[in-house]
């Protein structure tokens, strides 16, 4: 489904690797800055991507993030191999979390991650199989009219 006018890059995310956690999102932010995406939109993408990246680091063994940019949209897909989410509806509620004490000490695990991702993306999709992994897709429209 790759288009001729689409930029695509895949990043690996390692589970439990807290010293590099957030590095992929920083890189994405820099790419978006280089190609001149409006600052407001970069913030939205960076926040959503960072939360998704932290989720992989905290809950999964490994994962990957695929960034696709075309003239209309920025799309981020995050796929991980890990424990998955049993009840997505519950996980989407602000304040609900299955985080361990260690994750909370990192400043995360307050049950804000998925709601933050949903709030910042224009289209948000999540599927998960417990014991297998989770797939997230976020779409951000470059055209502000479409976004509202």
């Amino acid at each position: 489904m790759t288009r001729d006018d689409e930029f695509r890059q895949t990043f690996k995310i390692k589970g439990r690797d807290f010293s590099h956690a957030g590095g992929v999102s920083t890189e994405i932010k820099e790419i978006l800055q280089e190609i001149g995406i409006p600052t407001q939109l970069i913030r939205r993408v960076a926040i959503a991507s960072y939360e998704a990246e932290m989720n992989v680091v905290m809950y999964a063994q490994q994962g990957k993030l695929i960034l696709s940019i075309n003239p209309e949209t920025i799309q981020i897909e995050v796929e991980d191999k890990g424990q998955g989410i049993k009840d997505i509806e519950l996980a989407m509620q602000e304040g609900y979390s299955t985080a361990t004490e260690e994750m909370r000490e990192m400043g995360f695990g307050a049950g804000m991650g998925l709601p933050n991702i949903k709030k910042n993306s224009h289209v948000f999709l999540i599927t998960s199989t417990p014991g297998v992994g989770t797939y997230l897709k976020m779409i951000f429209y470059l055209d502000h009219e479409k976004a509202s």
Partner: peptide, 9 residues
């Protein structure tokens, strides 16, 4: 590290 990453984001 996450304090700085978050500040940067």
């Amino acid at each position: 590290l996450q304090s700085v990453r978050t500040a940067d984001i």
